[in-house]
Deep mutational scan, measured.
Amino acid sequence: DVEPGKFYKGVVTRIEKYGASINLNEQVRGLLRPRDMISLRLENLNVGDEIIVQAIDVRPEKREIDFKYIP
C-alpha cells in the first residue's frame, strides 16, 4: 500500500502538459504535476526514466495518487 509522505521509486510512463504518469508497479500509478516538481522541469523528463517520488495525496477509493518530486 502507498502511504502519504513515503518515498518510492517509479518509472515515467507518459508525459503530458498537465504532468507525468508515474508507475510504481503494474497495479500502482499516479501523477506528478509540474507544480510538484521542485528542481525538475517536465520537459527534462523522458518516458522510461526512473525517479524517486514522494506520495503526497493518496485516494484509494478513486485509485488516484499524487506525487511530488524532491531531489
Rank of each mutant, 00 (worst) to 15 (best):
L32S: 01
V47I: 13
L24S: 01
L31S: 04
K6P: 02
R41M: 12
A20Q: 01
K6F: 07
R63W: 10
I51H: 00
K62S: 13
V58M: 06
D36S: 04
A55P: 03
E50T: 14
P34C: 09
F67H: 03
I22M: 01
Y18D: 13
Y8E: 00
V58S: 05
F7K: 05
D66N: 10
E50Y: 14
E61S: 11
L24H: 01
Y8T: 00
I65Q: 03
S39E: 14
I65V: 10
I51Y: 01
G48A: 01
G10Q: 01
F7G: 01
V11P: 00
I15Y: 00
S21N: 09
I52C: 14
S21A: 11
R35H: 11
F67L: 09
P4L: 15
G5A: 03
P4R: 13
I70F: 11
R35V: 10
I15D: 00
P34Q: 12
A20W: 06
G30Q: 02
V2S: 02
L32E: 03
V2W: 07
I70R: 06
P71Q: 08
L40C: 13
D1V: 14
S21R: 12
D57E: 14
I52L: 10
E26G: 12
L45R: 00
L45W: 01
Y8W: 02
R35K: 14
E3C: 11
E3R: 13
K68Q: 10
V2F: 10
V47R: 02
K17R: 13
D49R: 02
D49M: 13
F67R: 03
V28C: 09
I22Y: 00
Q27K: 13
A55S: 03
E16N: 14
G10C: 11
V47E: 06
F67Q: 02
L31A: 03
R35M: 09
E16D: 15
V47C: 05
E26M: 12
P60R: 09
L32V: 03
S39T: 09
G19H: 06
Y8R: 00
E16L: 12
E43Q: 08
R63I: 08
G30K: 01
L45P: 00
I70M: 11
V11F: 08
E61T: 09
K9R: 13
D49P: 00
I15N: 00
A20V: 14
D66L: 15
K68S: 11
K6V: 08
N25G: 11
P71I: 07
V12D: 00
L24I: 14
Q27N: 14
A20L: 08
G30L: 07
Y8V: 01
V12C: 04
E26N: 13
I22D: 01
M37P: 02
D57C: 13
V2E: 09
F67N: 02
R14Q: 11
Q27F: 15
R35G: 12
D66F: 15
V11I: 14
E16M: 14
S21K: 10
D36C: 09
N23V: 14
V28I: 14
D57R: 15
E61L: 08
Q27R: 13
P34I: 11
D49W: 07
V2T: 04
Y18M: 11
L31E: 04
N44E: 15
I70V: 14
M37W: 04
E64I: 11
V2D: 02
L42P: 05
P71C: 15
N25W: 10
G10R: 00
K9Y: 10
R59C: 07
E64R: 09
N23F: 13
P71A: 11
R41T: 15
R14T: 08
V28W: 15
V28H: 08
K68M: 12
R35T: 11
Q27I: 12
E26D: 14
E50M: 13
D1M: 14
Q27M: 12
N44A: 11
L24T: 02
R41V: 12
N23T: 15
I70S: 09
R14L: 10
G10K: 00
A55M: 07
K9H: 10
E50R: 11
D57T: 12
A55G: 01
Y18G: 10
G30C: 11
D49F: 05
I70A: 11
F67S: 01
V28A: 05
F67I: 04
L24Q: 01
E3I: 15
L45N: 00
Q54I: 12
I52A: 02
G19E: 04
Q27A: 13
I52H: 05
K17M: 11
R59W: 07
R33Q: 06
R14G: 10
I38A: 10
F7C: 14
L45F: 04
L32M: 05
T13R: 04
G10E: 01
V58Y: 10
I70Q: 08
D1Q: 13
E3Q: 14
N46E: 12
S39M: 11
I51L: 10
T13Y: 05
K68L: 10
G5I: 02
P71W: 07
D49S: 03
P4I: 15
D66A: 09
F7W: 11
G48D: 03
K62Q: 12
L24M: 04
Q27E: 12
I15C: 07
G5L: 07
G30N: 02
I70P: 05
R14C: 07
D1S: 13
E16P: 01
K6I: 07
Y8F: 04
N46R: 15
L45I: 10
L31D: 04
G48P: 01
A20N: 01
V2C: 07
V58A: 05
D36F: 08
R41K: 14
D49H: 03
P34W: 11
L32R: 01
K68V: 08
R29M: 14
R59Q: 06
I65L: 08
N25I: 07
R33I: 07
R29D: 09
P71K: 08
F7L: 06
L42K: 04
Y18K: 12
M37N: 08
E16C: 14
I70W: 13
T13P: 00
D57V: 13
E26K: 12
R41E: 11
I65E: 02
I51K: 00
P60D: 07
G19W: 12
E16K: 08
D36R: 03
E50W: 15
Y8I: 02
L42A: 04
D66P: 01
V11Y: 11
G48E: 01
G19A: 09
R29T: 14
E26F: 12
E64T: 09
V58Q: 03
N25L: 07
Y18T: 11
G48H: 02
V28M: 08
V53P: 00
L31Y: 06
T13Q: 05
L24N: 01
F7M: 06
R41W: 11
V28F: 09
V11Q: 05
T13L: 04
E61N: 11
V47L: 09
V47W: 02
K17E: 13
I38M: 09
L45T: 00
L31H: 05
N25Q: 05
L42S: 04
L40S: 09
G10Y: 04
V28G: 04
E43K: 09
D57I: 12
G30H: 03
S21Y: 15
E16R: 11
E16I: 05
E64Q: 11
G48C: 04
R14A: 14
E61F: 05
E26Y: 10
P71N: 07
D1E: 13
N23G: 08
A55I: 15
R33P: 04
K6C: 14
E43W: 09
S39K: 12
I51V: 06
L32Y: 01
I15M: 03
R14I: 07
G19T: 05
D36I: 05
E26T: 12
R35D: 11
G19R: 04
E64F: 10
L31M: 13
I15E: 00
N44V: 08
F67D: 02
I56D: 02
A20R: 01
